[in-house]
């Protein structure tokens, strides 16, 4: 555990060593505000909830999470520190978990900085706090899944731009299979089993169901398995290709 925390501390501090953290947080807050108030019409709806914020959150995470995850391993490869890290007394699991948890904590800081919106709606009306808490959990789980997938992709390349683009595409696919338009299109010709399994692998369907205010075990299990599978694949990729 303490070995993981050594990696975690270095990684988490590294976000704040460059202007990256500031730029990221400001951009995230600006865009989430823009989406929530202008596109989502938080005030015009006349309802005290954060639904507009959470509805746009997956699409915001789609671009912002790959910006966090792209450097996780690609940068280590590019500057050669992967050789240093893997010959220090760490296991690959320590390295993968430490890096992932640091990235997740950073994403959590960004998401939780939106709580002034929650305070605003709580002040203006009486929202269902249970739904909002469940939605925050859903948002964190979705960010975690995207980060785990992104870390895995970052481990395959030295190039951060490639890591970013491939991660956006992968996360987009993970989202879009649950998109109503895609579901309608597929249900036109594919057997219902295919439509259902597409919905089952979609991060969006699981997220939408959490937004209704119920943290169902199946939804949590879904995100947990995406994270676990991606981290496991990440360890294997580093194991096989660390010297490439």
């Amino acid at each position: 555990m303490s070995r993981i925390s050594v990696i975690f501390r270095r990684e988490f501090a590294s976000y704040f060593a460059t202007p990256l953290a500031g730029v990221f947080l400001v951009l995230f807050l600006f865009l989430s505000g823009l989406f929530t108030f202008n596109l989502g019409g938080l005030f015009d709806r006349g309802q005290a909830d954060l639904r507009p914020f959470f509805q746009f959150l997956p699409w915001l995470l789609l671009f912002l999470v790959p910006a966090i995850s792209m450097r996780l391993w690609a940068e280590e490869r590019r500057i050669g520190t992967i050789e240093l890290l893997t010959t220090l007394p760490f296991t690959l699991t320590d390295l993968v978990l430490g890096k992932f948890l640091a990235a997740w904590a950073f994403a959590a800081v960004a998401i939780l900085l939106s709580t002034p919106m929650w305070i605003t709606v709580a002040w203006l009306g009486s929202p269902d706090h249970g739904v909002i808490i469940a939605s925050y959990c859903g948002g964190l789980l979705m960010a975690g899944s995207f980060l785990a997938v992104g870390g895995c992709i970052s481990a395959t390349t030295k190039n951060q731009v490639i890591a970013f683009v491939v991660c956006v595409v992968a996360c987009f696919l993970l989202l879009i299979t649950g998109f109503p338009a895609v579901q309608d299109y597929v249900s036109g010709w594919a057997p219902s089993a295919v439509v259902e399994s597409l919905a089952a692998v979609s991060a969006l369907s699981h997220f939408e169901s959490i937004l209704r205010g119920v943290l169902d075990v199946r939804d949590v299990l879904y995100f947990a398995s995406v994270i676990a599978a991606s981290l496991f694949a990440n360890v294997l990729i580093i194991q096989w290709r660390k010297a490439d």
Partner: peptide, 29 residues
């Protein structure tokens, strides 16, 4: 791994860390 110290080719290190921070990280590791 605890029995050796290794200087990889090109002496890689984290460019955005200070010398004392980097060495403290290695000491913790």
């Amino acid at each position: 791994k605890r029995r050796f110290g290794y200087l990889p080719e090109g002496a890689p290190a984290y460019p955005d860390m200070r010398v004392d921070e980097f060495l403290s990280f290695i000491a913790r590791a």
